[in-house]
């Protein structure tokens, strides 16, 4: 057996647990505002390089976005690491995973920092990488692939669930609201992280290749991608609101017991209510 752990030492797991919650709360504010600015105050298709130029001319917004980047990347990767850790059991495998995630975070932050730093020198009319117009097509194709996978997965899940219920086969732990909350929280977290990866790359185009960037943004108005864009907003809303529910439950401990199911229903309702205006904005912006 390994030697007895120090009873006073703060474990890595404890630090990550705290970090996910504190960064999560900060992100509710930061990502919430960002979401509002990108999907409610305007349609995503209208966020072209001129829009970006206007926004990033303000030092306040650049600082805001720097923090958003930092927190979103670390929160997302900490969350992914939590999921991956469940499957890894030796301390060596876990240490390797830790290193990989730290490196990924640094890479993402470096990319974002470079982008923000380049802003002060960029014209947002043309840039050094503008010749690489294939990037826009590549990003668009990538999104189409992800959308197709997402739609297919949702269809399969719906059919599976429908069949289970139709054939009156037991759905086991899927009859518990907590199980759905947990699964959706992980699924939305992973979805947002995947989106974030693409988003960091495409936003980096704005100062370096504004024409490519404009082409990319215009391609996001593809109606095939619209359901996924709605799903993205829904995911961010759900993940944040459910995150708040989790924190409230953890603080209230036994007082929350009778409210478990109600709280989850509330999360779903609030998510849908807040989602509605962004759907209107999105649909109205279609060509």
């Amino acid at each position: 057996m390994h030697s007895a752990p120090d009873p006073r030492a703060t474990s890595r797991a404890e630090i990550v647990w705290w970090f996910l919650r504190l960064s999560g709360l900060a992100l509710v504010v930061l990502a919430g505002l960002h979401l509002y600015a990108m999907h409610y105050a305007t349609a995503p298709a209208n966020t072209d390089s001129a829009f970006v130029a206007r926004r990033w001319s303000s030092a306040g917004w650049r600082t805001f976005d720097a923090f958003l980047l930092l927190l979103a990347v670390t929160h997302g990767l900490a969350g992914l690491e939590t999921i991956v850790r469940d499957a890894l059991h030796t301390s060596r495998a876990r240490a390797v995973a830790d290193v990989v995630f730290v490196l990924l975070s640094l890479a993402a932050i470096a990319l974002g920092a470079t982008t923000l730093a380049a802003v002060t020198h960029a014209s947002f009319v043309d840039g050094p990488l503008d010749g690489a117009i294939w990037i826009a097509a590549a990003l668009h194709s990538g999104l189409v692939v992800i959308a197709t996978i997402t739609y297919a997965a949702l269809l399969v899940l719906a059919v599976a669930l429908g069949l289970q219920l139709f054939r009156r086969k037991p759905i086991g732990w899927w009859s518990f609201s907590g199980q759905w909350a947990f699964a959706l929280h992980r699924a939305t977290g992973l979805g947002i992280l995947a989106f974030l990866a693409i988003h960091l790359i495409d936003i980096a185009l704005a100062p370096f290749a504004p024409r490519v960037y404009d082409a990319t943004v215009a391609s996001y108005a593809d109606p095939y991608l619209v359901p996924m864009e709605i799903a993205l907003v829904a995911a961010v809303l759900y993940h944040g609101i459910n995150g708040i529910r989790l924190i409230v439950m953890e603080i209230a401990d036994r007082r929350m017991l009778p409210w478990r199911s109600t709280a989850f229903s509330l999360v779903i309702v609030i998510t849908l209510v807040l989602l509605a205006p962004s759907v209107v904005v999105l649909v109205r912006s279609l060509p």
Binding site: V16, F176, S177
Partner: peptide, 25 residues
């Protein structure tokens, strides 16, 4: 109060709970 802390607050202890709640159900 610190006695069981090492046993339960480690890597796969209390901080691995995801507050799902199936246990209560």
């Amino acid at each position: 109060p610190t006695a069981r802390r090492a046993a339960v607050a480690g890597e796969d202890g209390i901080h691995a709970c995801r507050s799902v709640g199936n246990c209560v159900a």
